[in-house]
Amino acid sequence: MNKQQTNLPSKQDIPEDWFKPIGKNREKAEDVVRPSLSYWQDAWRRLLKNKLAMGGLVFLVLLALMAIFGPLLTPHSPTAQNLPNQNQAPSMNHYFGTDNLGRDVFTRTWYGARISLFVGLAAALIDFFIGIIYGGVAGYKGGRTDSVMMRIVEILYGLPYLLVVILLLVVMGPSLTTIIVALTVTGWIGMARIVRGQVMQIKNYEFVAASQSFGAKTSRIIKKNLLPNTMGPIIVQMTLTVPTAIFAEAFLSFLGLGIQAPHASWGVMANDALSTIISGHWWRLFFPALFISLTMFAFNVLGDGLQDALDPKLRK
């Protein structure tokens, strides 16, 4: 306190011209001097500060790059069998070793990444579209439409989703398409509920009433007024859908109901490698298990980070 005071210039040191009146300027009085941040810029700025979430994001970008280019880094095919070469430990030739059919685990891991990321993103996107349409209409219309639509959701919500997925897989035969269809049959419900809740809250705000009084159509109000303001929770929900879908794919492949041989998916690789617990070929289980866990971890921390960043109430 004292120190500060002594550092201040004394009265005589201050030049006279510092005290010139600047006068009134009515035009400039309303100007915003500092650059204004849009909602998205602000969210991005706060996400950048979250080290764990950024770590997750960086990992996912790297994983996506490896899923695209990783198989090009080795001369080995992900499906070609090479029996004399079976169960090789990791080496300079086979970075992650080989499996019991002599296939290169490194190449197969990146093919597995393609499948996992594809399943996760496809499921999240389909959930997104069905969820916002269903939830948006239910929330906006309200009344009888809403209660009928929500009764349907309530009944569907009670369906044990993995059980439904397993039944569909049995009927439609295991394939990538089936898995995605099966995952989205009940997957959109969570999204629909979130969108409905948000829309019900926002539709009572004045700017929506203003839009209505200008004669905007329902579809326009939903598209232009309601959805942009519900984007935060929707994005968070999507980020958290992806690891659920990735887990489900791995789980189903592990049970033998998912992607079929010779295609590689992390769940298939882990299932094939179960016997290695006794034989000691640890790399065959380790790498797919590591990447399933890391990917789910990355999506989970990114989702947590986005939840904080996109919530304007948590702004510091």
């Binding site: 289980l285 866990s293 789910m296």
Partner: peptide, 18 residues
């Protein structure tokens, strides 16, 4: 806790058996 959410139960099962 985040690790527990991220590691699928079948992976954990094989790890603990190992």
């Amino acid at each position: 806790a985040v690790l527990g959410i991220s590691i699928p139960n079948f992976v954990l099962a094989t790890l603990v058996i190992q």
